[in-house]
Design a protein around this nucleic acid. Structure first.
Lengths: 210, 210
DNA sequence: GTCTATAATTAGATAGAC
DNA sequence: GTCTATCTAATTATAGAC
């Protein structure tokens, strides 16, 4: 595998370090607990501020949640774009494999994204609405279109693309979403590059045959 | 937090219909929300009783959660055993495929199980302890041992069994854990036998080559 | 911008009637 | 066994000092 340069996770600096610390704490706690179970007091404490300050920077807990979600998907999009820019032009299969690898690497380094999705998409709600229509659907549409082309070329097994989508988004991130469980069950460290690369290798082998 | 040491809880048909209704409501709400976000008042309402009655039947919210978890894993174990009994003796590959199919079918009909696991295994806690040591580890150990034998025979791609475990437990249930999202994104109905079978086919194709 | 103090609501658990 | 009434603690949001 080609040596990739380390991509820092620098959330777009909003020129306000306090806002950024609050946002980072919100991402962590909303994804680890859930919207209702994440107390604003605890988010504030992790950000090193007092609880009422959250209501100064964000109108409500709900608005803070939306800002947290936006920042996470923004980070994903920039990571994927960086990787796409790196590979330049090659055949579609090679590009697809690179996208899958980047997706898995991102999910390993930012398990919050899939934790948030599984948190909110188990039942219909306003938050699921926001998440799906604003962020997930564009990704789903692009991924399904890609799998359709790959299946036509025989580059991927003959499986309906929606199933491939849930196979990829399940098989890729689950080991990292459940990192604490994985550590205890297997003794592996899901944060290490070795394990991340091995998992990306495994998923690509299953999906693309190599 | 005092650790209750209750012995011999039998979550099967407990001959007490009220207890059973409470337990079913608890399974649904704990898995859909999370431990903290699931209000005992709401569990009671769904079971058609008043909130203080939960504390009559179960010492605390925590004990109710444990009983709910036990009943879910009990159901899984009985479903897997029934399927194993059906196939009787054949080669190990055929048996393995049957186990995978049954696991996926069960996950589709009872998405609460993986919802609960992803809920609680994102961070270390007493509940994760209970879940992993009491219920998940035995399943993990058996699954990893099976994948090890299959990989030796070349029946499964040459991938470390812990990775295969998280690929299977991710790729199998995710479509059903996120059923409301899947319905909206794809238009498919993840509760229909057609979709369930198609997903089981897809995962088996990826995992076993057919 | 960030704090302290507090209001309004809701949580899980208990007491006691029936 | 199931209810009503209620206690205590914790929740988000607001008011107002600095």
């Amino acid at each position: 595998m080609a040596k990739t340069k380390t991509r820092e996770r620098v959330p777009r600096s909003s020129a306000d370090p306090t806002r950024d610390r609050i946002l980072a704490a919100a991402v962590d706690l909303f994804s680890e607990r859930s919207f209702d179970a994440a107390a604003t007091r605890e988010i504030a404490a992790r950000a090193g501020v007092t609880q009422p300050l959250l209501n100064y920077h964000y109108r409500s807990k709900d608005e803070l949640w939306r800002a947290a979600v936006d920042s996470l998907f923004d980070l994903l999009e920039r990571s994927m774009n960086d990787r796409v820019a790196e590979i330049g032009d090659g055949d579609e299969l090679t590009a697809a494999k690179q996208r899958v690898r980047e997706f898995i690497t991102f999910s390993a380094r930012n398990p919050q994204l899939h934790r948030l999705i599984t948190q909110e998409c188990k039942a219909d709600s306003d938050r699921m609405d926001y998440l799906v229509e604003r962020h997930v659907r564009p990704l789903y549409d692009r991924t399904v279109a890609l799998f359709e082309r790959l299946a036509r070329d025989g580059a991927v097994p003959p499986v309906a693309p929606s199933h491939l989508y849930y196979i990829l988004t399940g098989a890729g991130p689950t080991m990292f979403v459940l990192a604490p469980e994985c550590r205890r069950l297997s003794g592996l460290d899901p944060e290490s590059s070795e394990v991340i690369d091995a998992h990306a290798d495994a998923v690509c082998l299953l999906l693309f045959g190599r």
